[in-house]
Amino acid sequence: MALTGWVAGTFAVVCLGVGLLHLLRAALLRLDVAGELSHAAMGLGMAAMFSPLGNPVPGPVWTVVFALAMAWFGGVVVRSRTFGGDAGHHAVGSGAMLLMLAAGHSAHGRGAAGTLGAVSVAALALTGYFAWHALRCADSCRRPEPTPGAVAVRTGVLEAPHVAAAAQLVSAATMSVMLLGMV
C-alpha cells in the first residue's frame, strides 16, 4: 500500500510530534525513562519511514537502536517472567521496527509488499497487535484522572496519563498503517 506524498508527510509530522513528546517526557518527568525513550525512538523511526523527503538517519543506526531496545526489554521480560505489561509491548514494538527495517519497508510502497510470505504473515499479526493496542490506548484516553487538577501542577500537561495514552494511540495506529503496507 503506497501512500501519497501528502498523506505520508502528514503521518511523518504526526510521528515526529509523538517522538518529540516522549523525548520531552523522558527529560522532564524522569519516570520510566527507558520506556519513554523507546516510544520516542519508535515515533522518530516511523517519522523517518513515512517521510517523503527520505530518512535522515542511516538504516544501520536504526537497526542498532531497535536491537538494543529489544534486548533491553526482552531482558526485563525474562527477569520478570511475564510478557504482559510495558516491557513486553516495547519488545514487540522494537521487533516490529526491526522487521520493517529488515524488509526495507517505507510508507511509499517499497519493501516486502506484494507476495504473501513469512514477512507478510508477521506484518499482519503485528498489525493486529498494534490495532488492539490502539484500542487499549483509546480506552485509557477516555478514563477520567483519579485526582483532577493535581497532575498538572509540576510539569503541566506532560504528566497527565491521558496525554501519554493519546500519544501511544497515535503511535500504535500509525504502526498498524505501516505494517499493513507490508502485507
Rank of each mutant, 00 (worst) to 15 (best):
D32V: 08
H22A: 11
G54I: 08
A134H: 01
E36K: 02
D86G: 09
M1I: 12
A152T: 15
R142P: 06
A122C: 13
P148G: 06
S80Y: 03
G117I: 05
V92N: 06
M182I: 00
V163L: 15
G43L: 02
A165T: 08
L180Q: 02
M182P: 00
L158W: 08
A48Q: 11
L29S: 08
E36L: 01
L135G: 13
V151M: 12
L101M: 10
G84M: 06
C141A: 05
F66C: 09
V7N: 04
G45W: 03
A173P: 08
G17F: 01
L135M: 05
M42P: 07
A87Y: 01
A102Y: 15
R81I: 05
D86Q: 09
L29H: 06
A118V: 14
H22F: 14
M70K: 04
A166N: 02
V33N: 07
L37K: 00
M49N: 09
A164F: 05
A165L: 04
G19Y: 03
H90R: 05
L124V: 14
A138L: 12
S140E: 09
S176D: 09
V65H: 05
L3F: 07
A91M: 11
A166Y: 03
G114S: 10
A40K: 01
R110H: 15
G111A: 09
A152H: 10
A131P: 04
L98Y: 06
M178V: 04
F66K: 04
S176R: 00
N55Y: 09
H89M: 08
T147G: 06
G59F: 12
C141V: 14
V157C: 10
T174C: 15
H162K: 10
A87C: 08
P146I: 05
V121C: 10
A71I: 05
V18H: 03
G88A: 11
V78R: 10
S106Q: 12
M70P: 02
C141D: 03
A91S: 10
A47W: 04
T155M: 08
A2F: 05
V170P: 01
A102D: 15
P148M: 05
A152C: 12
M1W: 13
D86V: 04
C15N: 14
A2V: 05
T147H: 14
P52Y: 09
L24I: 12
A41P: 07
S176K: 00
A165S: 13
G9S: 04
F50R: 01
V64G: 12
S106C: 12
F50C: 03
F11P: 00
R142C: 13
M97P: 06
A113V: 09
G117K: 02
L29F: 07
A40M: 09
L28M: 14
A67V: 11
L135F: 07
V177S: 07
G88Y: 02
F83I: 14
V163Y: 05
G114I: 08
P146G: 07
A48V: 11
R154N: 09
V119S: 02
A107Q: 01
